[in-house]
C-alpha cells in the first residue's frame, strides 16, 4: 500500500511542478460554464418556469460544474497507456514490483486530484457569480462519495480501452465512442431528468449514468433513493468492469507487442 501512496505522491508533485500550466489548462472551464449559462438561461426563459423537472437554473449549473470537473479532470488513461505501448516506455512500468493496474490507478489519482481541484475552484467562482451560491454543505459528502465511485468507473473504462493498445495499434476510436456515450447517456451535457422516461430507464441500466449523472445530481438534489441507486449501480458496475479488467490484463500481457528496439 505504501508504494502506491508514494506513486500517488510523485504524480502529485509532478503535476504541481508547473502551477501556471495547471491554472491555464483549467481556465477552459470558465468559458464552458459561461456558454452553458447562456444556453440554459435562454432555455429556462423559453420554458417560462423556475424549475424543469425539479431542477432550477442554479441547480443545473452546479450539476454541470461537477460533471465538467470530472470529465476534464479525469486522467486520459486510454491515451496514456497506448502512448506507453507505442513509445516503449511501458517496459519500465512492467518491470517493477507492483501491480501495473494499481500503479496506473495511483498515478492517475495523483495527476487528477490537483486538476479537478483547480477546475472545481475556477468553475465554482464563475457559476457562483452567474447563477448563485453552491448547494448546502450537507449535500457535499454524498456527492463526493459518488464522485469517487464515478472516478473509479472512468478509470476501469479507460484502462480497458488502454489495454486494447496491447493488441490494437490505435485506441482513439474506442475512446471516442466511450466519451460520446458518457456525454449523452451519462447525462454530462443534459441532466438525465430532462429525458423522456423510457430513455431514463435505458440510461439507468447502463454504466454511464453512474459515471456522471449520479454524483452531479446528488450534489444539487440529494435524495436517498438516488444515493442508494447510484452507489449500488457503481458497486455493481465496478465489480463487472474491474473483473473484466483483471482478465483483460492477464490475457493482454501474453500478447503484448512493444514497439521500438
Amino acid at each position: 500500500m505504501k508504494k502506491y501512496l508514494a506513486i500517488l505522491k510523485i504524480n502529485l508533485l509532478n503535476s504541481l511542478a508547473y502551477p501556471a500550466e495547471l491554472l491555464t489548462r483549467a481556465l477552459v472551464i470558465v468559458l464552458f460554464m459561461w456558454i452553458f449559462f447562456q444556453l440554459w438561461r435562454v432555455t429556462f426563459a423559453a420554458a417560462g418556469t423556475e424549475a424543469i423537472h425539479g431542477l432550477t437554473l442554479r441547480d443545473t449549473m452546479w450539476y454541470l460544474l461537477l460533471a465538467e470537473t470530472l470529465e476534464l479532470g479525469r486522467p486520459r488513461l486510454a491515451r496514456l497507456i497506448s502512448q506507453q505501448v507505442k513509445d516503449g516506455s511501458i517496459a519500465y512500468l512492467l518491470n517493477k514490483p507492483y501491480h501495473f493496474l494499481f500503479y496506473q490507478l495511483a498515478s492517475g489519482l495523483g495527476d487528477s486530484l490537483p486538476r479537478m481541484g483547480m477546475l472545481f475552484l475556477l468553475g465554482g467562482v464563475v457559476v457562483w457569480a452567474l447563477a448563485g451560491p453552491p448547494p448546502a454543505i450537507a449535500h457535499w459528502p454524498p456527492a463526493f462519495l459518488a464522485l469517487a465511485g464515478a472516478w473509479l468507473l472512468h478509470f476501469c473504462f479507460n484502462a480497458l480501452i488502454g489495454l486494447a493498445a496491447f493488441l490494437a495499434e490505435e485506441v482513439a476510436p474506442f475512446e471516442w465512442i466511450y466519451q460520446k456515450m458518457v456525454f449523452i447517456l451519462g447525462g454530462m451535457l443534459i441532466p438525465l431528468d430532462f429525458y423522456p422516461a423510457w430513455l431514463q430507464t435505458v440510461c439507468r441500466s447502463l454504466p454511464f449514468a453512474y459515471m456522471m449523472y449520479g454524483p452531479a445530481r446528488l450534489f444539487v438534489r440529494p435524495e436517498t433513493t438516488v444515493f442508494v441507486q447510484t452507489l449500488l449501480g457503481q458497486i455493481l458496475w465496478l465489480a463487472v468492469l474491474g473483473g473484466g479488467l483483471a482478465l483483460a490484463f492477464g490475457s493482454g500481457m501474453r500478447r503484448l507487442a512493444i514497439n521500438g528496439g
Partner: peptide, 12 residues
C-alpha cells in the same frame, strides 16, 4: 532524488 525515493518505496 524524488525518483530514487519513490524506488525505495516501490522496492520496499
Amino acid at each position: 532524488i524524488d525518483t530514487l525515493t519513490l524506488f525505495g518505496k516501490i522496492y520496499e
